[in-house]
Computed example of a mutant assay.
Amino acid sequence: MGLSLCNDPVLMWDRSVRCALACVCSTLLALLLSAPAGHASAPVAWHLSAIGAPEVWPEATGEGVVVAVIDSGVDADHPDLEGAVLPGRSYVDVDTGAEPRLLALGSESGPVYERAFGQADPVGHGTAVAGLIAAGAGSGEPGIAPGASILPIRVLDDENRYHDSAMVGAAVEWAVDNGADIVNLSLGGHYDSAPFSEAIAYAERHDVLVVACTGNQHQDGPDETVWFPARMPDVLAVTGTDQAGDRWLTAVTGDETDLAAPGADLRAPQADGGHKNVTGTSFAAAVVSGAAALVRSAHPDWTAEEVRRALTATARPGGEGLGAGVVDAAAAVDADVDVLPRVEQAPAVSEAWSMAATAAGGGLLGLSALLLRGGLRLRGGKGAQGGPRAAAR
């Protein structure tokens, strides 16, 4: 099911080569981050201090780590992300017409073609997520891992929704096949998807860590269950906190929650320039993806399971609903993974189940096509129960 379209050698570097370069580049970037300025330094953003990111930068900045942001695209022209955004891919048709295509792959060379592959963001959600992960050291609003690279993959439409979970699963597999070390999923919904589940298992088998948000809910409404895919055992499920370290009022949580991270009033890049304040578990997940990039950069020999174990075992205990606690990047980087408790692994999805799920998914896609031809567009309504969406506020 994985799609290998863009076999860019930059994306397909062997991890050992990337990590060797990381040792040199991380040191240079750390010096830039810590160098005294000729004027008073801007205060460090509260979420950076809350997870101890600046303490890690002299040792690791995320250099050599590729984080796939499967979202609404990423504005590669934003100054904060200059040089950090790799060529990506878009699964959203920019000209739907009467019969929308599932894939928009582009066909001509040049800037327009490049933008069609994820390096543009009409919504702004993916740009904010990417900036929180990897905005540059000199931007004034650095990301958690300012040396990391972003692999942008667009699956959310202009209304910040996706309409086909199998398509998002295909995006996950494409990210794995094209060099991702970490996959950030700041999206989700109420219903499970077998093809999407198999894609998560595919990432786990290929040593790629998947981080996803638990979801948001209405402040005065009933408590929601943790969204899919965050509730899957192989996914690092992240809820959001405020500056006091308490769970944010609208952040979903449950037994499946693994970690918490700052998720309220965060300063992030805005598509087409500038910055904005963002709130939601989408952005808490981005913070954890950034922390994971720091750990993978500092410990290139660690597996995805060991990175996950370091992040959860060293989290600072917090209030109710925060899983293992609030992520502590500095403690995770300093952890001795050999003495940390192991994470119980979920059974892998069998090949037979995968084939059955793929066949079922094909049937559903065929039905969707028939409905589309009949003029009925399948989409998650705004506020509709179970409608797939991004976890933003």
Results as ranks from 00 to 15, higher is better:
A330W: 07
L266D: 08
S193D: 06
D242E: 14
Y191S: 11
T279R: 09
E173I: 01
L372G: 11
L81Y: 07
A130K: 09
G254W: 12
E351P: 00
P300F: 05
D272S: 11
P262G: 06
L294T: 02
M355E: 15
W302K: 00
W13S: 12
S193I: 02
L311Y: 10
E204H: 13
E351D: 08
A128H: 09
S354T: 13
R373L: 12
A244W: 07
V66I: 15
A285D: 03
M167W: 09
H299R: 15
D164I: 04
A203N: 08
T314L: 06
L372N: 14
G240A: 15
G254Q: 10
V74Q: 06
A199T: 10
A331C: 01
A22V: 14
V123N: 08
H47W: 14
R161M: 09
L367P: 05
G189V: 05
A244P: 02
A145F: 12
W57M: 04
A291T: 04
D258Y: 00
V69L: 06
A356E: 12
E114Q: 13
A324F: 08
A291C: 13
I150T: 06
L367M: 15
V17M: 13
P152S: 06
D265Q: 12
G110S: 10
F283K: 03
A137L: 12
G280E: 08
H218P: 09
S282W: 12
V129N: 01
P152L: 09
P269W: 11
A137K: 03
I51H: 04
R15Y: 03
I51C: 06
R342Q: 13
A261Y: 02
W248K: 07
E159H: 15
V129D: 02
H299V: 03
G381Q: 06
W227T: 07
S109Q: 07
A286V: 10
A298R: 08
T27N: 01
D121L: 03
R373N: 07
A20S: 11
R247V: 03
S297F: 09
D75C: 10
L32P: 00
A37Q: 15
C213I: 01
G263H: 13
A175Q: 12
A352M: 09
R115F: 10
P341T: 00
A22P: 09
A268N: 02
L259T: 05
G169F: 08
A201F: 13
G263V: 13
V211Y: 00
P300T: 04
H275Y: 13
A201L: 05
G290Y: 03
G323T: 08
G254C: 10
G374A: 11
V17C: 09
G274C: 10
A315G: 00
I144N: 01
V17S: 07
A148M: 07
G381L: 14
V112Q: 12
G140S: 08
H125G: 07
P58T: 10
A37S: 15
H163C: 03
L151F: 12
L322C: 01
G362K: 13
D223A: 15
S49Y: 00
V211P: 02
W248H: 07
R377I: 04
N160P: 05
A30W: 03
